[in-house]
Design a protein around this nucleic acid. Structure first.
Length: 192
DNA sequence: TATAAGATTTACT
DNA sequence: GTAAATCTTATAT
């Protein structure tokens, strides 16, 4: 069920993003289990992608986890407010990362609602900052191994049909010039 | 040491 | 539809 290290080794960022749609992201943080199907994701393709923090081989204490072997988390703080959760893929030295933009809640919906203190259960995890908040992921979790018992990804046999996947340009990356136009965003229209 | 800007969300007009 | 919130990180003195 839990995806092993081998799953994350593919070097094609777009392939990995599509492969992660329909997979189940699970966290057990302070003893509370929450999970959801990944329904929206964006690919950030390493050093040649201007929108990526690792563009032009930029290596800092923040981006360091992206350069490690695939199958770990890259989490960072944006706008001083939101933690954004990414899945690091590809072998060591290739800094690819997949930003999880939305999930469809499965386990622990009540816990997520409490964390989000939101009455709108429909909008509980529809946005990258909301996903992290609902699952209890914090930017201090960056570099966490996805083979551990805190954050991991499972295959529950959900395979999106080609008709259920849309792709398009990424969000909020206008500064990236023509890389902002790349169709690296994938949406899975999951029907419960 | 200082400054500018950001893979966004939320509340308010 | 517009703007404020809020603080780390990267880059420059």
């Amino acid at each position: 069920m839990k995806l092993g290290k081998a799953f994350y080794q593919h070097e094609d960022a777009v392939f990995m993003a599509r492969a992660l749609l329909g997979k189940v992201l699970v966290t057990r943080i302070s003893g509370l289990l929450t999970s959801g199907i990944i329904t929206e994701i964006e690919a950030y393709a390493g050093i040649r992608d201007k929108a990526s923090h690792a563009f032009s081989n930029r290596y800092t204490s923040r981006t360091a986890p992206m350069y490690l072997n695939g199958g770990i988390a890259y989490v960072y703080l944006i706008y001083g407010i939101h933690s954004l959760f990414n899945i690091v893929t590809a072998p060591a030295g290739i800094p690819h990362a997949m930003l999880v933009r939305a999930i469809h809640p499965l386990n622990g919906l009540d816990i997520m609602q409490e964390r989000r203190s939101s009455k709108h259960s429909k909008d509980i995890a529809g946005g990258p900052g909301k996903v992290s908040q609902a699952l209890g992921i914090h930017y201090s979790d960056s570099g966490e191994d996805l083979q551990g018992d805190k954050i991991w990804i499972e295959d529950r046999g959900i395979v999106p049909h080609a008709d259920e996947i849309l792709s398009g340009p990424r969000i909020g990356v206008d500064y990236a010039g023509k890389d902002a136009l790349l169709p690296y965003r994938f949406i899975y229209h999951y029907n419960a």
